[in-house]
């Protein structure tokens, strides 16, 4: 049995054991995401996230599904005021960018994101960039792909070496 199917099986068994008494909702992952962004806004968000952690020989944030995580977090874990500010900045991003946002990429996009971080496009844009960068990083480094392939994630290490040489 593959790990993923085993996990699904375990979840199924747990839910079956619970019957109709749902104390916890393990189906949350499959719930539709609803920050209710327009398609145009989705595009802006994806390009923005893709600029923070782009694609290369190693998958970037967009192909690993980080935008879905970002929207979930913005919707559920941020105050309405922060959400509104973010939404407003999201709408302004294409016009703040000097050039054709729909083609933004590479060093030009990075330079723009750096300006956002520096506050050169205003405090709200700076806050929105900080929020998005934080969430993109969090989402990216906790994807299955990155944790397994790059960060040596072990759920149950089962050992403890209290003092080993750094270059071991």
């Amino acid at each position: 049995m593959k790990m993923s199917s085993r996990r699904a099986w375990l979840k199924g068994m747990t839910l079956a054991a619970l019957g109709t008494v749902a104390y916890y909702d393990l189906s949350a992952k499959s719930k539709p995401i609803s920050l209710s962004l327009s398609l145009a806004e989705e595009d802006v968000l994806n390009r923005w996230i893709g600029g923070i952690i782009p694609e290369s020989s190693v998958p970037g944030a967009v192909s690993l599904g980080v935008p879905t995580f970002v929207k979930t977090m913005l919707k559920d874990c941020y105050e309405p005021k922060a959400q509104q500010t973010f939404r407003a900045v999201l709408g302004q991003i294409p016009s703040l960018y000097k050039g054709d946002w729909s083609q933004a990429s590479g060093p030009a996009l990075e330079a723009f994101l750096f300006e956002l971080e520096q506050g050169k496009h205003g405090v709200d844009a700076q806050k929105a960039m900080s929020t998005l960068k934080g969430l993109t990083i969090q989402g990216y480094v906790t994807t299955e792909y990155v944790m397994i392939n790059h960060l040596n994630y072990q759920m149950a290490p089962g050992f403890w070496n209290p003092c080993v040489p750094v270059n071991k």
Partner: peptide, 23 residues
């Protein structure tokens, strides 16, 4: 074990990666 629904879940399986919602 039967009623430890999250015990085998990896970080990426948590919708909010562990965080609580505003609600």
């Amino acid at each position: 074990n039967e009623d430890y629904p999250t015990t085998l879940m990896s970080p990426w399986e948590f919708e909010h990666r562990g965080r609580l919602t505003q609600e």
